[in-house]
């Protein structure tokens, strides 16, 4: 496989995942902004922080800022339109590496967001976000049902797993203070709803209850998002996928690379530690460390496969 093709598939996976992540984070902001007692624009501000988007000058973001910068901006790093355009460009550059359905899922309605103006997008925000989620589900379905399980597939999965791990970490990075024990004292209705919104953003509400019962406890939520082995958006699960993809690459193409070693060590570590240890050492520090490690793996992958 051409290195350029591997690179494009890797980024195709990342951009599609990122478009969906941004949509999920905006949905979360929408829910939080509906809670009574939400001070001004703070929730939209934290949405912008989570995605790493450029902030307005007064450091406070409105719903309209979010629509402008995270949905309709053709260039921002996390903007949905930009991600979908880049995903399509990456896909177009490796047309031969995609199945027909994958390409159709990328190409269909590809100018839809371009056709929306800010006010329309804002007034139809839920519909627009739903469109993004459907589009990414269509893409994922097309990958799942028809793509050969060869190196192309593993590069794509690798990209999406790395992006997904990153998104879960960023979400926690912005909302980690909600999970710190001292907030439990303050606690009450608002926190409860905020946690629900976080779980909602990762589609984990029902899974959480299934696994941990009905109570929201900060350490359970942190455990769910970081260490749970069967929840597909947890950090540990994402790393099991990263490790799986890299192991396949190792088997098929030989050569043990640094990225493989890093991923395996990280997976073993996540399987070993428990959540109380993380809280003892500091949740925030742990998250920052993981964000750095995830971005390092991405770099090590491109070094190993010459892109």
């Amino acid at each position: 496989m051409l290195s350029r093709a591997a690179e494009n598939l890797f980024w195709l996976g990342r951009y599609m995942e990122r478009a969906e992540s941004t949509a999920r984070i905006i949905s979360m902001g929408q829910r939080m902004a509906m809670l009574p007692g939400t001070p001004g624009r703070s929730e939209w501000t934290s949405v912008m922080q989570t995605t790493g988007a450029e902030m307005p000058e007064d450091e406070m973001a409105s719903e309209l800022d979010v629509v402008k910068r995270l949905i309709l901006d053709p260039e921002g790093p996390s903007s949905i339109q930009a991600c979908l355009l880049r995903a399509r460009d990456s896909g177009r550059a490796v047309r031969t590496g995609l199945t027909q359905e994958m390409w159709e899922s990328l190409n269909e309605d590809w100018r839809y967001l371009e056709s929306l103006d800010e006010l329309t997008a804002r007034s139809q925000l839920s519909k627009v976000l739903e469109w993004v989620r459907k589009k990414s589900a269509y893409f994922r379905g097309a990958v799942d049902t028809a793509m050969l399980r060869n190196e192309g597939y593993y590069f794509l999965r690798l990209g999406s797993s790395i992006e997904r791990a990153d998104m879960t970490l960023r979400l926690l990075n912005v909302k980690y203070f909600l999970l710190l024990p001292e907030t439990e004292v303050v606690g009450g209705g608002r926190d409860h709803h905020q946690w629900m919104s976080v779980l909602h953003a990762v589609s984990g509400l029902r899974s959480y209850h299934y696994h941990y019962g009905s109570d929201y406890a900060p350490w359970n939520i942190a455990d769910f998002l970081l260490l749970n082995k069967i929840f597909p958006r947890s950090l540990a699960f994402c790393y099991s996928q990263i490790d799986l993809c890299l192991s396949h690459m190792e088997t098929d193409h030989g050569g043990s690379h640094k990225c493989q070693k890093t991923a395996r060590q990280e997976l073993e570590r996540l399987n070993r530690i428990d959540i109380s240890g993380i809280f003892n050492d500091g949740l925030h520090e742990f998250i920052n460390e993981e964000i750095a490690r995830t971005s390092r793996i991405s770099q090590e992958v491109s070094d190993a496969y010459h892109f």
Binding site: M1, L2, S3, R4, A5, T96, E151, M249, Y305
Partner: peptide, 26 residues
């Protein structure tokens, strides 16, 4: 795609000892 061959761009190819090579992941 239909021939099952690689679609390459000029930067994917290089010449060494009068032979043409493509840059692949391996």
């Amino acid at each position: 795609d239909l021939m099952g061959i690689e679609l390459v761009e000029p930067q994917d190819l290089f010449v060494d000892e009068a032979k043409v090579w493509m840059r692949t992941i391996s």
